[in-house]
Design a protein around this nucleic acid. Structure first.
Lengths: 326, 326
DNA sequence: TTCATGTATGTAACCGTTTACACATTTAAA
DNA sequence: TTTAAATGTGTAAACGGTTACATACATGAA
């Protein structure tokens, strides 16, 4: 059995209060006593029980991290950013995938609370914001905007705008703009940005709606796109996964890239640079976003004054080989 | 404040013991009483505090998941398999990345224990197995063999053998065999398997050692490989990330794939099928491995009889376009 | 009718910490 | 020298559940 604070107290010949004092460096402890206690701890290989601590203090060193799906290549980077930053602060992660499913989300939120997490980072896009109301612990939304909660997100609208601008500047004349899933807000932002920019230009374009970011679905839309708009010479994809599917289908149809058709993705997931031709895209700084979210959350946990509740991260056009040179 | 069992008891006009009984469906409770209690719970929006429960029972519904790095595309699949299976059993995940760093690993292991996790799944490859000894809760090793602990892993040696067999069968004559990082055991297994098979053949081959699976490093080895062995016409890479780097370098050097040089990877990470040319590889069923590991762990937690402590998952050759047809 | 058994509920101890409070001793200021 | 403040330590009550044990009534068999 693991040693308890009582075992240590007995071994050191003091009371549990004294042990607790050296443990937490609170109150007065005589140097000699401290030494005896520290030695007893070492001797018994003592490590305080976080559960007992958490019960009394009504707060743990745990935070809840809720992602849509870690299997989507955009999220591991986010998660890693979050973890690296939380790690430094001594926090640990209770992790869940929501699949953008309201029931699952609620279930995880409940277990977070029941386990006394001291904060939550959520990257889900469910409407059910009400899940978070009345939660009494800080919540930071990641990859998602919110007027009610602190949030960290990339400037999707500007990203969409840049993508449109770049593809037009590079000479596409008959553009297809893919509109991502309606319930994924960042997808709508980037769509909106691109839409406005295209509308401002005198370029013909079509809009095609999609309903998921799964590669298997994207393959279908890719086929549909070239069936419906065979003369498309530029595609603004809703993210890199969809862009990859488009790229593949275009190649399969014998189109030359970027000569016959230009493609711009969104996210800059790690594999995008490895495709052939490598994918031009709008980069979101995922790792940094994760870090920012964690920092913001920690500040809220510590009740520090926070000046910017909403951190909008910059997006950048990554020029690779699915776009022509200007 | 959240309602406690005492609040519910008061509201329902019973003792906490009775509330606990309806909560856990233990002992006798009169139907009428149960109804009153259930209503009080609903009314107060009561949800039991897992921390208090965990403290008394000395066990939680948490399990610890330790991965080398979620950012490595092989692991999200594993993680997802683990999560999906644990979810079903009502378990939640405490998550950490070890970076194959012994200190970090130990740190996470400690917090797992301090938080009363009821089991651990570890996919690290540190020598420091001693970290796990005397842990008193079940541990399952994932993507790693162990004689002392239950484990789930792919048949790396057979995978290496198959890769060698296939590349030889398809006509490579001057093969370079990449040996993965020495401390990553699965990398050694696949190397060993390939080595034995190649030795058995009458084909010339070189062995080149590498020390990490990071893409940036792999790019360097790719350059080095073609510098040292410019006439190589077949590469058995230590995993798909390394294979991708080789593929890129070969393309950059103007080599035709698979005519001039064949490449076989290992893992079959999601992006491998998206490369151009798409990567032939040895597939490990990552998602299923995660599931198996979770199932195995749950059986141990429930102290069920387990017939196979070591689950070796099959590997398969995925024929794509970096190998020639037979 | 008696008594063993089943049903129903409550009291209080316990899980391993933290901390309010009490008490004693030392130190330093008046 | 007196005394307030600083130092050092212990006791016991929390935290929110679970459960051993006690108690009481209802039921049915002997």
């Amino acid at each position: 059995m693991l040693a308890t604070i009582r075992d240590v107290a007995k071994e050191a010949g003091v009371s549990v209060a004294t042990v607790s004092r050296v443990l937490n460096e609170t109150g007065y402890v005589h140097a000699d006593t401290r030494k005896r206690v520290t030695e007893a701890m070492k001797h018994l290989n003592y490590s305080p029980n976080e559960v007992a601590r958490s019960l009394y203090k009504k707060k743990s060193k745990l935070i809840g991290l809720l992602l849509p799906d870690i299997t989507n290549p955009f999220f591991p980077q986010l998660a890693r950013g979050v973890e690296d930053e939380l790690q430094k602060g001594g926090y640990r992660i209770l992790f869940g995938n929501s699949d953008e499913n309201a029931a699952k989300e609620l279930e995880y939120l409940n277990t977070f609370i029941q386990n006394n997490v001291v904060g939550i980072i959520s990257a889900t896009n469910n409407k059910s914001k009400t899940n978070y109301d009345g939660l009494s612990i800080p919540v930071v939304f990641l990859d998602r905007t919110s007027s009610d909660y602190p949030s960290v997100y990339a400037d999707g609208k500007e990203g969409g705008r840049i993508a449109a601008e770049e593809i037009v500047k590079r000479g596409s004349k008959r553009i297809t703009l893919l509109k991502g899933p309606a319930h994924i807000q960042p997808a709508q932002d980037r769509f909106q940005g691109a839409l406005e920019e295209l509308s401002r230009s005198d370029i013909d374009f079509h809009v095609m709606s999609t309903t998921s970011f799964a590669f298997e679905d994207a393959e279908k839309w890719a086929k549909e796109l070239f069936f419906m708009y065979p003369d498309t010479d530029g595609v603004l994809a809703s993210n890199d996964i969809v862009a990859t599917a488009i790229l593949h289908e275009a190649l399969r149809l014998g189109k030359k890239i970027p000569e016959d058709i230009q493609i711009i993705g969104f996210d800059d997931i790690p594999q995008s640079s490895l495709l052939f031709p490598s994918l031009s895209t709008i980069r979101q700084p995922a790792y940094e976003m994760g870090k920012e979210a964690a920092q913001l959350l920690i500040k809220h946990i510590n009740k520090e004054r926070v000046h910017h509740q909403h951190i909008q991260m910059p997006v950048t056009f990554i020029e690779r080989n699915t776009t022509r040179k200007v």
